[in-house]
Design a protein around this nucleic acid. Structure first.
Lengths: 143, 143
DNA sequence: CAGTGGTCGTTAGCATTGCTAAGTAGTTAG
DNA sequence: CTAACTACTTAGCAATGCTAACGACCACTG
């Protein structure tokens, strides 16, 4: 089997696993009526401190209009604040509010509870494999 | 660090990687105006030969009404056929048509092209890690 | 100092995905 | 024969994510 063939088989297998797992993780959602996408954006905001919509969209790998919606939902709940950019009048600076940080801390753990329980039941060797795989996948996704 | 803590960190990292990768794979979509979900259902149908909506929903990890929609789209395009169950009047048997099998064969490879290209660029050791990870993830998703 | 072109964010509109609740039709058990 | 259960669908909703188009703003150029 060539490397080409191997990569194609692997791609199919990976996409299959990822699609199903993604559906599963999404199902286990009603944490604090914050969705995965919203929590993910909030997490990225906290890690970076403050970002423009464009930057946040790039980090989250979505198009700017999609991020506008997500940020809109978060702003409605008072979890993030939009402030004008100090020098560039076109840009907006988005940052988490106090409440946003509190909500994030509260729900960040509950979010992955279902998955964490499954993983805790795996043999340590499998977890180690997944840990390395996660790093590789993140690189692939960001490339 | 306890196993508990390890599992939680891993869960967060995995979910992050999977969410981003899933968005990426979905983006590379316009194959034959068949979506990932539709191709996935079509694939499951071919592997199994024929399935009821309930069975197909279980395999795909979605609720029956969701599968009704997906099958509806496939049926519109003439890619699957709904036939009455021979003995149980409540059930429906779904099977791929000739055209469905042809379309599937044509697009199954193109579907994962983007991902396969990325994977082909990885060191073989990384691909091997991902291959084992895919198996583990499939088990986790099905559990 | 106008004008031109580019960038940023948003709005509008669309399709898909996926859910729950409820309805219909058929089957099975008492 | 009725009651309860099962299978599938319909209806309605929310979230995700896209493209196209628009208004505001910046930066550069003549």
């Amino acid at each position: 089997m060539t490397e080409r063939g191997t990569a194609e088989q692997l791609a199919t297998q990976l996409r299959d696993a990822i699609t199903r797992l993604n559906r599963r993780v999404r199902q286990a959602r009603p944490v604090g009526d914050l969705t995965i996408a919203q929590l993910s954006a909030l997490t990225s905001l906290e890690l970076a401190g403050a970002l423009s919509p464009r930057e946040l969209a790039d980090v989250e790998r979505v198009q700017p209009p999609t991020m506008t919606k997500i940020v809109g939902k978060l702003a409605e709940r008072g979890l993030v604040r939009r402030t004008p950019h100090p020098t560039d009048g076109r840009q907006v600076v988005i940052a988490a509010t106090e409440e946003g940080r509190a909500v994030h801390a509260q729900f960040a753990r509950a979010r992955d509870e279902w998955l964490a329980r499954r993983l805790a039941g795996l043999p340590p060797a499998d977890r180690e494999t997944l840990r390395r795989a996660a790093e590789i996948l993140q690189q692939v996704a960001r490339a």
